[in-house]
């Protein structure tokens, strides 16, 4: 079961890499977060921990419902182009993603040792998500892609924390959720501001400050 979930996480991340338009990116983010929710929920069922149920519920509310909804609303309101602005076309991006997958697998195998296969795969999916997040932030032009890239990195780290080290202390986990919530709100408000002052959200063109 865990492998199926990890596989769907991987697929949703690949979908993000080849997405050309912002709504598609947000939709894939929603799938990915839903998979993470399922994973946490299954662990909670096994271990019967109230804490894990709470974390799963928070994950669902925040990353599956609230954040995608907020981002869709911002897109509608500012009426910006839905184009993501690709520096690297989908085919080439896919090649990059394959490279990332291999790299993170080699890295995790080295880090943990080849005998613990389940953990190696989990770790490599998590690292792959982090790398993909960075990739999205660098090679896509709009402010939305940067927000989602950040959230993908955060998801990767959530996976890493919950599966590799058995979750973080409860209040730290809650604090991190709160933090993600606040940071998305703040970044959203800055997207509005950028759109107001520059009449576009192409962060590649923000180049007034140099040197």
């Amino acid at each position: 079961m865990q492998f199926i979930i990890l596989f769907t996480v991987l697929v949703s991340t690949y979908l993000m890499i080849i997405a050309k338009r912002t709504p598609a990116l947000i939709r894939s983010f929603r799938y990915q977060s839903f998979c993470l929710f399922m994973a946490t929920f299954i662990i909670a069922l096994h271990e019967h921990g109230l804490v894990l149920y709470i974390i799963a519920a928070l994950l669902f509310i925040l990353k599956v419902v609230f954040i995608p909804h907020l981002l869709y609303r911002i897109i509608k309101k500012i009426k910006a182009s839905e184009d993501l602005g690709l520096f690297i076309n989908p085919q080439l991006s896919l090649l990059w993603a394959l490279g990332f997958t291999y790299l993170s697998w080699v890295f995790s195998a080295r880090l943990i040792g080849p005998d613990n296969e389940v953990k190696v795969i989990m770790l490599s999916v998590a690292f792959f998500m982090v790398l993909t997040g960075v990739f999205l932030m660098i090679f896509r032009m709009t402010a939305f892609a940067q927000i989602i890239g950040l959230l993908v990195m955060e998801n990767g780290i959530f996976l890493l924390a919950s599966m590799v080290s058995g979750g973080m202390p409860f209040f730290v986990e809650i604090a991190i959720f709160f933090d993600v919530f606040v940071s998305v709100l703040i970044m959203g408000s800055f997207v509005y501001k950028i759109n107001k002052f520059f009449t576009h959200i192409d962060v590649n063109k923000l180049s007034r400050l140099r040197g």
Binding site: L150, F197, R208, L209
Partner: peptide, 22 residues
């Protein structure tokens, strides 16, 4: 101050530092 430059600086600040901190 809600000027072009300051909004740009704030965006870069929040994005670069958030990635770093992740």
């Amino acid at each position: 101050y809600n000027k072009k430059e300051s909004v740009e600086a704030a965006w870069k600040y929040i994005i670069i530092c958030s990635v770093g901190i992740i």
